[in-house]
Amino acid sequence: MKAVVHVMLKQGVLDPQGEAVRHALGALGFKGIGAVRQGKVIELDLDRSDPEAARAEVTEMCERLLANTVIESYRIEIA
């Protein structure tokens, strides 16, 4: 099965890259854009069949490596 991990900077943590993207979109003429936040997506192919066990394992991966929970939050999709 596949796990997809979305890692984003927490609300309140400055995201200068998102801000730069917002400015660039404005320069292209796109209007009405509020905040832009940039994150990353990590796809994992897992040799697992139990979604709950997979979610527990990926949660541990996030806590120990994939996200730095001082500054980032994460969301896991199991498919």
Partner: peptide
């Protein structure tokens, strides 16, 4: 050292990019 949690906090992208 912040990633090992020996020191608190984190270093993020420079505000001026």
């Amino acid at each position: 050292l912040t990633e090992t949690r020996l020191l608190p906090g984190a270093l993020i992208r420079n505000a001026g990019l």
